[in-house]
Structure formats: structure tokens, C-alpha cells
């Protein structure tokens, strides 16, 4: 029996039978997108692993030149933004429209702080000539090539992560505008939910980037 036609709403489009079915489909779709992202970042993590094995000594020295306290503080900032994001999703589940907007704005601000700190760190690298290229110079080691390789991977990985943050910030602004207009309710909050998944995913990428880039060779450096 084909299901009888129903009135179309945001939470129940024509092609779905129930609201739960539509919600599950959206969640699964977002996860499948995130899985393509896992494989995308996985390739970068793998490249880092291979070169770190080959040039372990140089990578240890280069890694130890990063400021671990700034990295740790930025990790805390990002974790705070994940907390406010999940509270925004919770506010949406409860249909508390004002709270959605405020938690999303907080998330956006914390994301901005993270990117600001990241910009400060990158600027430091320019000042120290740690940017891969003709002016690259890393003090105290003979092998400049592998050191450039470390910083190439550092900029590629943190840069791609930051790009995801910028896209996330754009999505948050879109949500804030829509939530401000009262588009989301307890029965329809899928966009808040899936953007939340994206934001937490970007957080997880940083959870791995932080120890791999800043921490694991710390006891060898200096």
C-alpha cells in the first residue's frame, strides 16, 4: 500500500512517511558526508605518519618549536565551542528559540577566537621564517628539507582545519539568521542538528592534530 498523501511541512516532506524517517535520513546523510571528510583528513594524517617515521629527529625538533600552551589553550576554546554547540542543539530539541540563537552566537564567537589565535600563531611562523619556501630557515639543524616538510604538513593540516572552521562559521551565521526568524522548533531542527555534527567533527580533527603536531615529541625537543 503506498502511503496516503500528507500535508507537506518542513519536518515532513512529501517523499517521507514519517518525521522520524526524514530525521534519520538527514542524520545518516550528514554522517556519510563526514565519513568522506574522515578519509580526506585520513590521507593527510597518513602522510604525516610516514614522514614523521622517516625524519623522526628533525620532526621532533621542528614540532617542539610550536608553542604548546597556545595550542592547549586553543584546544580548550574549541571544546568550549563544542559545548555551546551541543547546548544550542539541546535548546532546539526543547524548542527554546531564544536559547538557540544565544548558544549559536556563543559558538560563533568561540570559533572566531580559535581562528584569531591560529592567525597569531601563523604570523609567528612568518616572523621566524618557518614558512616553507625560498626564505625558509630553521635554526640549529643541518637538514632544512625535512624541517620544511614538517611545516608544509603543519600548514596544510591546520590550514585545512581552519578552512573547515571558516565554513562552519558561515553555516552558524546562516543558522543564527534562520533561528532569529523562528524557523526552528522542537519538531523541526534538522539544520541545527546536522551543523552541530559538522562542528563537532571539526573539533575531533583538532583533537588529533593537537597531540600529533604539538605534543608527541615534546619530551625530546630542546
Amino acid at each position: 500500500m503506498p502511503s496516503e498523501t500528507h500535508e507537506e511541512t518542513l519536518a515532513l516532506r512529501e517523499q517521507f512517511n514519517t518525521e522520524a524517517q526524514q530525521k534519520d535520513a538527514s542524520t545518516l546523510g550528514m554522517w556519510i558526508f563526514l565519513i568522506t571528510e574522515i578519509m580526506f583528513f585520513g590521507g593527510m594524517f597518513l602522510a604525516y605518519t610516514v614522514y614523521r617515521r622517516w625524519y623522526a629527529d628533525v620532526f621532533a625538533v621542528a614540532s617542539s618549536s610550536l608553542n604548546v600552551y597556545i595550542g592547549a589553550a586553543n584546544t580548550v576554546v574549541l571544546l568550549c565551542s563544542s559545548l555551546t554547540m551541543v547546548l544550542a542543539v539541546r535548546a532546539a530539541q526543547l524548542g527554546n528559540r531564544k536559547a538557540i540563537v544565544w548558544f549559536l552566537i556563543l559558538t560563533l564567537l568561540l570559533g572566531g577566537v580559535f581562528l584569531g589565535v591560529k592567525a597569531y600563531e601563523w604570523n609567528e611562523k612568518f616572523v621566524e621564517h618557518h614558512i616553507p619556501g625560498p626564505n625558509f630557515h630553521f635554526e640549529g639543524i643541518a637538514q632544512q628539507g625535512p624541517a620544511q616538510l614538517f611545516f608544509s604538513l603543519y600548514f596544510a593540516m591546520t590550514g585545512l582545519h581552519a578552512l573547515h572552521m571558516v565554513i562552519g562559521a558561515g553555516l552558524l551565521i546562516m543558522l543564527i539568521v534562520q533561528a532569529g526568524k523562528g524557523r526552528f522548533s522542537a519538531s523541526y531542527m534538522t539544520p541545527v542538528d546536522v551543523v552541530g555534527l559538522y562542528w563537532h567533527f571539526v573539533d575531533i580533527i583538532w583533537i588529533f592534530l593537537f597531540p600529533l603536531l604539538y605534543l608527541i615529541d615534546r619530551h625530546l625537543g630542546k
Binding site: S82, V86, H200, I204, D217
Partner: peptide
């Protein structure tokens, strides 16, 4: 074991974020 410890903690954090926040 520095690498092992760092990655084990990172996996714990990932699981917390995925299971609860996601």
C-alpha cells in the same frame, strides 16, 4: 609510549565527543 599515550587520550576524547555531543 609518548605517542601511544597521546593517541590513546585523543581516541578517548573523540569517543566522548562522538558518543555524547554527536
Amino acid at each position: 609510549f609518548s605517542v601511544v599515550a597521546a593517541l590513546a587520550i585523543a581516541v578517548c576524547k573523540m569517543l566522548l565527543v562522538a558518543l555524547f555531543f554527536m
